[in-house]
Design a protein around this nucleic acid. Structure first.
Lengths: 306, 306
DNA sequence: AGCCATTTCTGTCCAGGACAATATGGAAGC
DNA sequence: GCTTCCATATTGTCCTGGACAGAAATGGCT
């Protein structure tokens, strides 16, 4: 029994590596072992945990399902195969429209140049506004689905994110005109890392002739409070992907609303708020890009007479 | 139920927030308290640690000095003032060159368009390679210094990062030619969020005629392992900013080296590795952009005969 | 159906002990 | 003088097992 190459199959990972690769904290890993009897890593000579590749794999499946609403206690004792089926059964066999399917096919065939060119072509054909609200939005959705179904690799998703960022940032810079009122400060709260949503909003804003001060992701509330007057913005807009809890998103909006002067509006949008019933007092919920365009128009009407 | 209105100055941070803001692990924070008597957070009604703004500040100074070679036990009982002096004495009263100072002045005056235009102008004047290795590198350094000295706000740093990203991504896309060998897969490991370093590397690579597959930040090792053959790359390059521990960076390189076939080279660079003594067997340490250009050249010579 | 109270579940925090990995400092050898 | 090696000191990470807050699920009420 001799392997020509070191097979990664019998590799062992210490708890720090598992935390890094699964996003599950060391405390969580230990408490799962204590409560549910999984994972059961072997120990090295100094009684430190060493996790097998199979356990690491299962932990990643669990993480995925938990992020999509399953409870750990219900699924932790199922086998890898059962978990994979659970993931597959989630989405009722739908297929994306052909344009989107073609783009995804380019991505999964690892044809980086082809994918980039196809995106650029779609942008040219549709213009920035439609490109963002139709193509990119649909891509986000269907790539998420494909990922759940195991049809797309994590690294493909990374590459997708990079390409879309490149193209959107490029288009935003290229947009003619310097933008007028309202000036919108755009960012997300700590914990919210999803950059594409922010860039999509920025693209729409710029396309509609607004001016955008983009701070990127994960700005602490206090720093937003300080930045808003410094940049003399009219609106502070926050994006919450579905990685955020709806409650956490609403709490963030409420906190920010309390900290900012009344003259500055607070807008919130994104997946976490798509199903929210009502906005916190004094804040505005944007459930779609159309909502945002109406909000822009309303702001301009209200501030027209001066 | 408690009514909590946070005022920035007497704000209190729980141990998770401090870990996030300082990069010191919870274990380290607790063991320092036990051993050295610092920090001494107050406790909430459930005996959980709450760190004051001042202690958070001191912890950040300590982290910084430790990253620069000081030992914790020697400096942990000095005051904030003494630590600040220690930092100041580290870089003997230097001032940034006038071009850099002018850019920083635009940034701190919140003149977003002016800052953007000045960056674009520098790029046009210098070309991509010099812009990255001179202007952006210097800006990173001096903005870090300005932050240490309290001369720059967190949100200004966020805005800086966004603008540089816009410009670099724009320049990378605009670069003529599709790039040839070697094909380099470029990313960072989970925990390493610093995007500008990655983009700088990508810009230099592209400017030198290489082909780059950029996966963005925080790609788990397993996914890198899978991506490398899928994209048929010749080299996997990882970037570690000084937010990473040197040990963690070296461990990551070692792990990756073991998982990838010998035909794929492993390169690592960035602040965390700047003072590393020797590279893990089979990996290459790049301590500067020049190192990277030499490495590219060497690779091309070695693979010239076909 | 919607709303509120109660129970269950789950992640994070705690204390204090242990030890591996690294850095330091000095002695020995070239 | 300079490296090389080894003993010692320092420092970060991991361990166990207990506790509890906050989120989610459940049930009872209008």
């Amino acid at each position: 029994m001799e392997a020509a190459v070191d097979l990664p199959d019998d590799a062992l990972y210490n708890i720090a590596a598992v935390e890094r690769d699964t996003g599950l904290s060391k405390d969580t890993l230990r408490v799962w072992e204590r409560r549910y009897g999984f994972p059961t890593p072997v120990r090295d000579r100094h009684d430190e945990r060493l996790y097998s590749t199979g356990q690491l794999e299962k932990l990643r499946l669990l993480r995925l399902l938990i992020d999509h609403g399953h409870r750990p206690g219900k699924i932790i004792n199922q086998s890898n195969v059962e978990l994979t089926q659970l993931i597959a059964s989630r989405a009722p066999e739908q297929t994306p429209p052909p344009e989107i399917a073609a783009l995804i096919a380019l991505l999964t065939s690892h044809d980086t140049d082809g994918f980039r060119n196809a995106l650029l072509q779609a942008l040219m054909k549709q213009g920035l506004l439609r490109f963002v609200t139709e193509t990119v939005a649909a891509l986000n959705y269907w790539i998420g689905e494909a990922w759940l179904a195991g049809k797309i690799a994590v690294f493909d998703e990374h590459l997708y994110s990079e390409h879309v960022q490149n193209i959107l940032r490029n288009a935003i810079i290229a947009q003619p005109g310097r933008g007028s009122a309202p000036r919108v400060l755009l960012t997300s709260l700590p914990g919210e890392k999803h950059r594409i949503g922010l860039l999509m909003v920025e693209a729409v804003l710029v396309a509609e002739g607004g001016a955008c001060v983009a701070l990127g992701t994960e700005t602490p509330v206090i720093d937003i409070q300080n930045a808003a007057p410094a940049y003399q913005v009219d609106v502070v807009a926050l994006s919450f992907s579905s990685a955020f809890t709806q409650n956490a998103a609403l709490a963030g909006l409420t906190e920010l609303r309390a900290l900012l002067p009344d003259s500055i509006e607070v807008w919130g949008g994104g997946g976490a708020l798509a199903r929210a019933r009502k906005a916190p007092a004094g804040a505005l919920l944007l459930r779609s890009f159309d909502d945002m365009r109406y909000a822009l128009e309303r702001w301009r009407v209200e501030h027209a007479q001066r």
